[in-house]
Design a protein around this nucleic acid. Structure first.
Lengths: 143, 143
DNA sequence: AACCAACCTTGGTACGACCAAGATAACCGG
DNA sequence: CCGGTTATCTTGGTCGTACCAAGGTTGGTT
């Protein structure tokens, strides 16, 4: 991400900056997660399960902003890794009830720690207060 | 981008917010650009040419953070549209000298206007001052 | 019972980011 | 001036994210 002398018109467009920041974050996360054998989506799903309890695939997807199709693939990986269990919902046999396993609960903290160091890496040019401010602004923009 | 009740752990990770903001921006830009028959990369390349003058492919790519391979494809599109001209550099026959055509100069303003309205759409929850702040923070983080 | 809606599954598309190898041309040390 | 190294462009791929559409099953509604 050199961009020593990027065009002024570009630097003025928030969407461009966001896109480039996202690409950089994606790269860092990809490396960190590859080392841990996971993905960013795994963390999101595990976090949703921990906070809201067992749920159906679509609802987890809605909470995390993940498409149904992609949820399916992610859950396949997570079940294979034993971090999540898929069982038919007795109350509604259309649904798969996704539950967090004890190992998955542990995995969540592991991925959280990994991602936290990535944040430091990504935002090392900003002070803690500035990072909070950035986070707040982005959260408001997405709300 | 519902995410009514996204997990707290997720909302606290700047990289997640950046990624989601980028996805949303990508979507809006995709729609706007499809209507205009262009891409975000086109704007970046044209902007670089306007600001720094004719140059080789790789240097433009470095300025914009675009890979060589992708530059090749984008320039193919831009030449076909007549917004850019590719000619061998007489001083260095390895290079293609990329120059902005008059039509391309016009196209740049057109795409700039399109992208500006996308910014408004993307950040309509933020005040102008907040948008500037966000832009500044992102620029610093990427520098 | 019939129709519609919700959920999961499957399989596809598009695009951005990236990587590797080959061809050609320039440069530079000997 | 020759040979090796570097730079540029081209080509052709991979990977991951974000989508979209269709089909099958189950649940709910009328």
């Amino acid at each position: 991400m050199e961009m020593e002398e990027s065009p002024t018109r570009l630097r003025g467009k928030p969407s461009w900056l966001i896109s480039k920041a996202s690409a950089r974050a994606h790269r860092l996360i990809g490396e960190a997660m590859a080392a841990a054998g996971g993905r960013a989506y795994h963390f999101a799903i595990l976090a949703a399960l921990e906070e809201y309890g067992p749920d159906s695939q679509v609802r987890i997807g809605q909470r995390c902003g993940i498409d149904q199709s992609d949820m399916h693939a992610m859950l396949k990986e997570l079940t294979e890794q034993g971090h999540v269990a898929r069982s038919p919902d007795p109350n509604d046999r259309r649904r798969n009830l996704i539950t967090l396993t004890p190992v998955g609960r542990q995995r969540l903290d592991e991925l959280d720690a990994t991602l936290s160091t990535v944040q430091d890496n990504l935002l090392n040019a900003l002070s803690p207060a500035e990072r909070d401010h950035l986070t707040a602004l982005l959260a408001r923009a997405l709300a």
